[in-house]
Simulated assay, not measured.
Amino acid sequence: MTRIFALVILLIPGGLAVYGIKLMRDAIFAEYLSLFFKAGIQFIAGLLLFIFGFAFIGGFIVYRDRKNKYRAIPEKQEKDE
């Protein structure tokens, strides 16, 4: 049950990041939503959503790795001679 809850917590910011990318793409190709009245505002809103979602997922991964003492690049062991 806890893993499903963690997955849901990660899916929400992931979905916001994807929606932010869509807003930025639509602003570039001049397809505006009725909520935004200028392309610049829509692009900035999409950029903020993308940054928030990306930072949340990245922070979650860093927190989990530090908690489990995971190292992506293991330290070199010196030779005893």
Rank of each mutant, 00 (worst) to 15 (best):
35 L>W: 12
31 E>A: 14
73 I>M: 04
7 L>P: 00
74 P>I: 12
71 R>N: 03
34 S>M: 06
81 E>G: 05
58 G>W: 02
53 G>P: 06
12 I>W: 01
67 K>G: 01
78 E>M: 03
3 R>M: 09
18 V>S: 13
57 I>Y: 05
47 L>T: 13
29 F>Q: 05
72 A>W: 04
17 A>H: 08
30 A>I: 12
64 R>I: 12
22 K>D: 10
46 G>T: 08
77 Q>C: 00
60 F>L: 07
56 F>K: 02
64 R>W: 05
32 Y>T: 00
5 F>S: 12
2 T>W: 04
28 I>Y: 11
57 I>F: 09
16 L>N: 07
12 I>K: 09
69 K>I: 00
27 A>C: 09
5 F>Q: 08
58 G>H: 07
42 Q>M: 15
26 D>V: 04
54 F>K: 04
9 I>Y: 12
8 V>S: 13
3 R>H: 13
81 E>C: 01
1 M>T: 09
64 R>D: 04
30 A>Y: 10
80 D>S: 04
30 A>R: 10
67 K>N: 05
49 L>F: 13
81 E>D: 05
53 G>I: 08
29 F>P: 00
42 Q>C: 10
68 N>P: 00
20 G>T: 08
39 A>K: 12
55 A>M: 09
49 L>W: 04
43 F>P: 04
18 V>Y: 11
40 G>P: 01
49 L>M: 15
68 N>L: 12
68 N>R: 12
23 L>A: 10
11 L>Q: 06
22 K>T: 11
9 I>T: 08
54 F>G: 03
36 F>G: 08
33 L>K: 14
34 S>D: 11
44 I>K: 06
72 A>V: 11
17 A>V: 07
55 A>Y: 02
19 Y>R: 09
61 I>Q: 09
8 V>C: 15
67 K>I: 01
21 I>D: 07
58 G>R: 10
72 A>N: 02
10 L>T: 00
62 V>D: 02
53 G>H: 08
28 I>K: 09
57 I>S: 09
48 L>C: 14
7 L>N: 12
46 G>R: 03
55 A>L: 13
68 N>D: 07
54 F>S: 11
57 I>M: 13
13 P>G: 11
74 P>D: 03
56 F>D: 05
28 I>V: 15
69 K>P: 00
64 R>Y: 06
7 L>D: 05
22 K>P: 00
65 D>C: 04
68 N>V: 05
13 P>W: 13
15 G>A: 13
65 D>F: 01
52 F>V: 08
66 R>M: 10
3 R>F: 14
75 E>A: 07
56 F>V: 14
17 A>K: 04
28 I>R: 08
78 E>V: 07
49 L>V: 02
48 L>F: 14
53 G>W: 08
49 L>Y: 04
75 E>M: 02
56 F>T: 14
45 A>Y: 10
15 G>S: 13
32 Y>P: 08
62 V>I: 14
73 I>W: 03
12 I>P: 03
28 I>Q: 08
73 I>L: 13
57 I>V: 13
47 L>W: 10
80 D>T: 00
4 I>P: 00
66 R>Q: 07
1 M>H: 11
3 R>S: 12
57 I>R: 06
18 V>H: 03
43 F>C: 05
62 V>W: 01
31 E>Y: 12
